[in-house]
Amino acid sequence: MTQAGTRAALAPDDALDPDAPAPRKRTSLSSSAIYERIKNMAATYEFKPGERINEIELSKRLEVSRTPLREVLNQLMVEGFLERTANKGFTSRPLDAKQVFDLYEYRLGLETAIARLACKRATDAEINDLEAITLRDTSIPDDSDSAELLALDEDFHMRLARLGRNEEFVRALANVNARIQYVRWIDMRNGRRPYTQAEHISIIEALKARDEAALVTLLESHIARRQDQITEVIKLGYSEIYTRSKL
Score class of each variant (00 low, 15 high):
9 A>R: 14
10 L>M: 15
10 L>I: 14
13 D>W: 09
18 P>W: 01
21 P>M: 05
28 S>G: 09
30 S>F: 08
31 S>L: 07
35 Y>H: 14
39 K>Q: 14
39 K>M: 15
41 M>W: 07
42 A>P: 00
43 A>L: 01
51 E>F: 06
56 I>M: 14
59 S>F: 05
64 V>I: 15
64 V>Q: 05
72 V>M: 03
73 L>K: 07
74 N>W: 13
76 L>A: 09
82 L>C: 10
84 R>L: 03
84 R>S: 07
88 K>Q: 15
89 G>T: 14
92 S>L: 02
97 A>E: 10
99 Q>F: 01
99 Q>T: 09
100 V>Y: 02
103 L>T: 04
108 L>C: 07
108 L>S: 04
110 L>F: 09
113 A>R: 05
114 I>T: 12
115 A>C: 05
119 C>W: 05
124 D>P: 12
126 E>M: 08
129 D>R: 08
133 I>H: 10
138 T>W: 06
138 T>V: 06
145 D>R: 05
147 A>R: 06
154 E>T: 02
155 D>V: 03
162 R>I: 01
169 F>I: 02
170 V>D: 00
174 A>R: 12
175 N>L: 11
179 R>L: 12
180 I>E: 00
185 W>A: 02
185 W>T: 02
186 I>P: 04
212 E>M: 14
212 E>F: 05
213 A>G: 09
215 L>V: 11
217 T>M: 11
219 L>M: 14
223 I>C: 01
224 A>N: 11
227 Q>H: 08
227 Q>A: 09
228 D>I: 11
230 I>E: 00
237 G>Q: 02
239 S>D: 12
